[in-house]
Write a protein that binds this DNA or RNA. Structure first.
Length: 547
DNA sequence: CGAGTGTGCGCC
DNA sequence: AGGGCGCACACTCG
């Protein structure tokens, strides 16, 4: 059963044959139809789902027309579809938000308001046609399904919130920075470290937060540095280095996740991040506000389960290199990862001498690094794992030629800019100079690094979506009809890691569910290839205890 | 004074 | 000559 909503929440079509009707009480209507397992089709999950959750309604499956449109618009699997050939339109834009009252006066004179809400019925038909006409309908359909499931999960993560202990957070800040100061003042321990920095530089009034001023002071003190970044500072032996790095770390903690952040983002013992599914070109999620995807390890101790509850923290081990091995069907690399630690397996296979070399070599292969230890191991990796290394090299060459590349399920990289293309064609022309040619080559290689990484990062994001969708389904079964926040539920996501908040009695079963979902995700993406995606799982009271 | 840009650093 | 982000702050500009 499939149900479509128009822009006001009116029911405009019922695909399984029922007559089109209009409903006033969306929440009640959804609840009424829950047992028939409908797939709800709507323009924007982030618009419709939060109020439904507030009303106590959980949606099992949906089809997010905007997210799906974005995928189908650019996928190499649907290039011939009517949807992809049509000019850009309303479905390529964010959903129009209602104007604030203050804005209404400005627009009151508009004689003919634009058609702000396009027809979801027609769009859904166009999307189905694009899928059915695709060269790989099963792949693209799976991608659309898990992208939409991700949108539901993002709304549920925000609704449930990450359990956050204000006192624990305050204790961490106080331990590291000193007691909370009055507004505008530096915490005492931060001020003390700054004293040591100033003394080492002999600059009593130094403002360490000004990169320009700090750089000038460092150079006056005899450090031959070109920036104030910690990577460069680390290389120097000078009395200012240690306290300055300490200052930077503490100042960062204070500004990014200090008391102000706590006041702004933690309400009633929950941190509610604003996840943005599909917010990154590769298909990764982004966040808007709160910085959930950059939650520093320093403060994870403030994430504490409710009394009688536990946190199940699970992360996929060496996800991206495993994804690469699976994508390429590289039997040697798949075998190296079959028994646990992938990098250790690569050493055991004789391909590389140390685990560290395996790791930096793979990171370099996936990011396009050429320098240092990474570049040195690459030839050996290429001999031992020709399919895996060949796949990223080919993705890089395609990007350098200005071509698009695709993830396992068909998400496709954007084309480089017009300026990029012009620079490339000019570089081969009669007016090219040595400088313009070098510049064009540099930009070509930069785009190649992007496409090289796109296939791996994007496919890893697809694995993570499949994994989370599987976890969500398993937890729903476990809940057996209970409201989802009363039973084990997802509360956090970080690219290759999830946190489930579970009644302690459910924790063992939750551990099984996350393992089963990981195995299912591998099969969904790569069957019939059998690729191991092992997890590190911990059942803890506090997120800080994991890993 | 606010908007826009650059730097630096947190996460993967 | 290392991929993808978001955020806070300093700084510049109008």
């Amino acid at each position: 059963m499939i149900i479509l909503l128009d822009h006001r929440g009116g029911l405009t079509a019922s695909i399984d044959g029922g007559p089109a009707t209009t409903v006033d009480n969306l929440a009640a209507f959804v609840a009424l139809h829950e047992r028939s397992h409908p797939r709800w089709v709507w323009d924007d999950t982030s618009w419709w789902y939060p109020p439904l959750l507030e009303a106590g309604v959980r949606v099992e499956r949906c089809w997010d027309l905007r997210l799906c449109h974005a995928i189908l618009r650019s996928s190499l699997l649907t290039t011939d579809s009517t949807l992809a050939r049509a000019p850009r339109g309303a479905w390529d834009e964010p959903r129009p938000r209602p104007r604030a009252a203050a804005d209404d006066a400005l627009f009151a004179l508009d004689e003919e308001p634009r058609e702000e809400h396009p027809d979801p019925v027609a769009e859904y038909a166009a999307q189905r046609a694009a899928v059915e006409g695709s060269a790989q309908p099963a792949r693209i359909e799976l991608l659309l399904a898990v992208e939409s499931a991700g949108a539901l999960i993002a709304a549920e993560l925000r609704h449930a919130g990450l359990p956050w202990d204000r006192d624990a957070h305050d204790a961490i800040l106080t331990e590291l920075l000193g007691p909370r100061p009055r507004a505008g003042e530096r915490p005492e321990k931060l001020a003390a470290v700054l004293e040591r920095v100033s003394a080492a530089l002999d600059m009593p009034d130094l403002n360490p937060d000004s990169p320009v001023e700090l750089l000038r002071s460092l150079r006056l003190a005899g450090l031959n540095v070109n920036s104030t970044g910690k990577w460069e500072l680390r290389e120097h032996d000078h009395p200012v280095v240690e306290p300055l790095l300490e200052y930077k770390s503490l100042a960062r903690l204070l500004s990014a996740n200090g008391w102000a952040w706590l006041d702004a983002w933690v309400v009633d013992g929950r941190f509610r991040p604003d996840y943005v599914p599909g917010g990154v070109v590769t298909g990764r999620w982004a966040t808007s506000g709160g910085g959930a995807l950059q939650l520093p390890r320093q403060i994870r101790g403030a994430v504490v389960a409710d009394p009688g509850w536990s946190l199940v923290v699970a992360d996929a081990s060496q996800l991206e290199p495993r994804i690469l091995a699976a994508l390429a069907g590289d039997a040697a690399m798949i075998a190296a990862g079959a028994q646990g630690d992938l990098y250790a397996g690569m050493v055991a296979s004789g391909a590389v001498d140390t685990r560290e070399h395996a790791k930096v070599g793979m990171l370099g292969a996936m990011y396009g690094g050429t320098t240092g230890a990474s570049g040195q191991v690459l030839p050996r990796l290429a001999r031992a794992f020709p399919q895996a290394i060949g796949l990223v090299e080919e993705a890089a060459r395609a990007g350098e030629r200005g071509e698009r590349v695709m993830t396992r399920l068909g998400r496709t990289s954007p084309l480089p800019s017009q300026a990029w293309a012009t620079a490339q064609s000019d570089a081969g022309g009669e007016l090219a100079t040595a400088a313009s040619t070098a510049q064009a080559r540099s930009r070509a290689r930069a785009w190649g690094r992007f496409t090289r990484n796109f296939v791996v990062q994007g496919t890893a994001a697809e694995w993570a979506l499949c994994w989370m969708a599987g976890i969500r389904r398993g937890l729903a079964e476990l809940a057996a009809g209970a409201w989802f926040t009363e039973s084990a539920h997802l509360v956090f996501f970080l690219h290759d890691e999830v946190v489930v908040h579970a009644p302690s009695g459910q924790a063992d079963r939750v551990v099984e569910i996350v393992h089963e979902a990981a195995a299912d995700a591998g099969r969904l993406l790569f069957s019939p290839r059998e690729v191991a995606f092992p997890l590190t799982v911990a059942v803890v009271r506090s997120y800080g205890e994991a890993k």
